[in-house]
Simulated assay, not measured.
Amino acid sequence: MTFNIETERLLLREMRDEDLDGLFTLDSNPNVHKYLGNRPIKTKAEAQKVIDSVKQQYKERGIGRFTVVEKTTGNFVGWSGLRLNTEYNMNGFTTYYDIGYRLIEDYWGKGYATESGKAAAKYAFEVLNLKRLYATTHIDNQASHNALLKIGLHYLNDFYFPQEKMTLRWYKINNPKL
């Protein structure tokens, strides 16, 4: 499966084994995991498991997170995009398409979450013809809250997520073409 989505500054493509170092840099940073349960990874083997899981999602579900690359430098920025959630009961939903992103700290504050998220939503609605997308963020993660609103999602409510023992915010966007 090959994905290539271009924005003004970014390339979103399928996640590959060559993303190992970038993914390790991303997910080993405690600041990145501040609102994700404070469990940064410690080894590249853990990063490879994430890559393998996303590649398996491509095969089984036809979609998974995209690697985000900065076009001017070719640098790994993080990941963004879509995922079909079937693992968790989130706010009463057990099967839904989620939009999300996670960026290396050096790329925070540049609008890349919003830019990549808008491209992923457009892909979801125009290529996959999905009816709606959902998203979550930690209640205290104001930057992510702002990015989700800029992508076009609407804040719905807060809920407690017992698996992670945290309160999350719940968002939704409907396909404007349906």
Rank of each mutant, 00 (worst) to 15 (best):
M1R: 08
T2S: 12
I5P: 11
E8P: 00
L12Q: 08
E14V: 01
M15Y: 02
R16Q: 09
R16L: 03
R16W: 05
D17H: 03
E18P: 00
D19R: 14
L20P: 10
L23F: 15
F24S: 05
L26M: 14
N29F: 10
N31A: 11
N31M: 12
H33C: 14
I41R: 12
Q48H: 07
K49G: 06
F66T: 06
E70W: 03
T72N: 14
T73D: 14
G74A: 05
V77G: 05
V77P: 11
V77F: 01
G78I: 01
L82I: 01
L82V: 00
L84V: 08
M90F: 15
I99E: 06
Y101K: 00
E105I: 05
D106V: 13
Y107P: 12
G109F: 00
Y112T: 01
K118P: 00
K122C: 04
K122L: 03
A124K: 10
F125Q: 04
F125Y: 13
F125A: 10
E126S: 09
L128V: 13
N129C: 07
R132K: 15
T136F: 03
H138V: 02
H138Q: 05
I139K: 10
Q142T: 09
H145N: 13
H145G: 03
N146K: 12
N146R: 10
N146M: 07
A147F: 06
L149R: 12
K150Y: 08
I151G: 03
F161V: 08
E164R: 13
E164W: 10
R169I: 04
K177R: 07
L178D: 15
